[in-house]
Design a protein around this nucleic acid. Structure first.
Lengths: 204, 204, 204, 204
DNA sequence: GAATAAGCGAGACGGTACGTCCTGTCTTGAG
DNA sequence: CTCAAGACAGGACGTACCGTCTCGCTTATTC
């Protein structure tokens, strides 16, 4: 059995943790993801490098947490709360609401670039990819799928449509435009995607 | 007026060029994109570092060319030929043909990882992004759009549908699954995407 | 007046003290003086780092004590006893006895290397140097000088010779060979030094 | 056969070499040997750390060369010239001349401390010790021994005295006083040592 | 056919960041 | 209070690459 010494997280300094995450966001904002270094984050946070290496394994992980903290602060989200789509009874309206929110997040001048960089890092770092899937993507899909299944039960969309594929038809094109910057990322585009996708699974 | 000396490409050593591109592919295959270095490529190719820096501006550019060379070798493609979708008259079948081919390229064990890494680099290096758009993405879209417009004229799909959005509904989800590794990338999935998208723009 | 809090030595753990000194000797034996660290000693002794820093100011001090303990254990010396040279009436024989003992100590495979390393540290740490002079060197000289003065009174050596210089002529070359490893450190060499030195101060 | 890549010394930058040695001496003068770091030397010399590690294996080696350069500059010594003792025919006077010079070197406020630190390092670093023996000590001894043999042939000292031991009786006590700072290091002391040693080997 | 000038292999150079190690201080909880 | 444990800020270590540079060598014109 492989033995590996782990730090005692009960004695972790909250002050350092926060300082590091703040410094990480600030460095990325100023220098961009590539030129942000662990050394730079440590210096800016007034922290020893080892304190970063003790709790994170890479720059990517630090920024993953930093972004998470930023989003939670902004949203005032309750810890551990599962995300959910609104359910007004109008499936089209509800999808548009959440897709527009996604557009807003992607185009946010503060978060957008970091998110893009992290999605980059995911291509290379399998640990980060796994974390992204379980902490970020899957909760989002679950929320979409729950709302879509409600719509199926309400007879608003085909009962036999694969909800997972529907989710991908909604978020795939949006993410594609965002990552490759191949077209404007607007609320109108979000609406179009919702409308067209619903047409593909609508009962007519 | 800024003056910049450019190397005389007529005196360029073809032997070195090929050795570098081969070495680059080999290094990525062995070590992965991240751990591949210009120094390593040079050493493996038996070439001075300057010879790489003289002709390329970054590791990304080298690999971009290396991949291009790999694909051309494999496909035996004629230089400068515009790609085009087949037109059998059956729009669904034609779309499936090309989407399946894309699936095959993405899942190719040799090319896939490099392509994914390059899509990473694109997020950071604007020159590379531009090059990717003009040399890779746009010719692809143009081919899709041409075929879709033909289908519109044939009355097979809605005449007022925005072909660009349709292209994104086809390739967006596919690329998403590929980049984030969130589900199996199969021919069946390609077919489903084609069918659902056509349903969204079908005439009823 | 500067105030400095000192630990209460009456509550000091003898168990820890011994464990630290043993661990220190063991680490030096295994890794050499340079690679021995306070952290390593603490870990090996099963002791907190602070317990070392509370009672010693440097690695050098710890090892000074550790060596002292080792020597006392070996010699079974009575605490506080002043060292003295034998006085058989034969000055040459007596000097040879003690010089040979010094040779034995220097060439002891366990103590030798640590002693050499400590002589290193003395060059840098004035507190340690002072301690070395008063606890180690001066008692030794005093013993030599007492014996030499007895020899002067007995008319065996020049009455006007400077005993301090004579001591240095005996121990200087020995220490030199030991520190710089410039020649074999043998009983024969010790004897030669005694004989030649006595010739220099002999009455003719 | 072990293969180890060695740098090409014909392409070595003399400018960097000199800058490093100068910076090393300056750092030691300002901070002392212990607080002098390779990083600090590199920064002060305006040189990359690797340039130091490429040509030297340790701080000690750098300073060994730095001191050597300092001495040569001071002495205006011809490269590769063997040191030799003066030979005026008066062995006592000649020995005093060179012992006094050694005293002067040891007490030189600029060189002394570095020399002491290096003699420290020698206790620990066998490579450095070897180098010290062959480049520093042995040439010195050879010079002494040559002069002493001449004196033997001239009938000034015992023909059967071991010249090596005589050298050690001259330099050993001097070095001892210097390293352990156990007494004043003066010309008078040098003279006493010469006189007493000669008395030990004199023909009377 | 010699002279000139480019590309080339090689690798030293000034730098920057890496990830590790250790220092000496501080904090926590057990005895 | 001392102690074991170990997190912390700090800083040097020695390594790996970066992108630039300089050195001879090989080639290919150009005179």
């Amino acid at each position: 059995m492989a033995y590996e010494k782990r730090p005692d997280s009960s004695r972790r300094s909250e002050r350092s943790r926060t300082a590091i995450l703040d410094a990480a966001m600030a460095q990325v904002a100023e220098l961009g993801y590539q030129k942000t270094t662990i050394e730079g984050i440590a210096a800016r946070a007034g922290v020893g490098k080892q304190t970063i290496y003790r709790w994170w394994r890479s720059k990517g992980e630090v920024l993953f947490d930093a972004v998470e903290m930023s989003i939670e602060e902004g949203a005032g989200a309750v810890e551990g709360e599962e995300p959910a789509l609104p359910d007004t009874g109008d499936i089209a309206a509800d999808l548009k609401t959440v897709l527009r929110a996604t557009v807003d997040e992607f185009t946010d001048p503060r978060l957008g670039p970091v998110l893009r960089a992290l999605n980059t890092e995911i291509q290379i770092d399998e640990a980060l990819a796994e974390r992204n899937r379980t902490r970020s993507l899957e909760p989002g899909w679950a929320a979409y799928e729950a709302r879509l299944r409600a719509a199926q039960e309400a007879g608003q969309i085909d009962a036999d449509a694969d909800v997972r594929t529907v989710v991908e038809m909604l978020t795939g094109p949006l993410t594609y435009r965002w990552l490759f910057q191949t077209g404007p990322l607007t609320h109108a585009y979000a609406d179009t995607l919702a409308d067209m996708t619903l047409k593909a699974v609508g009962r007519d």
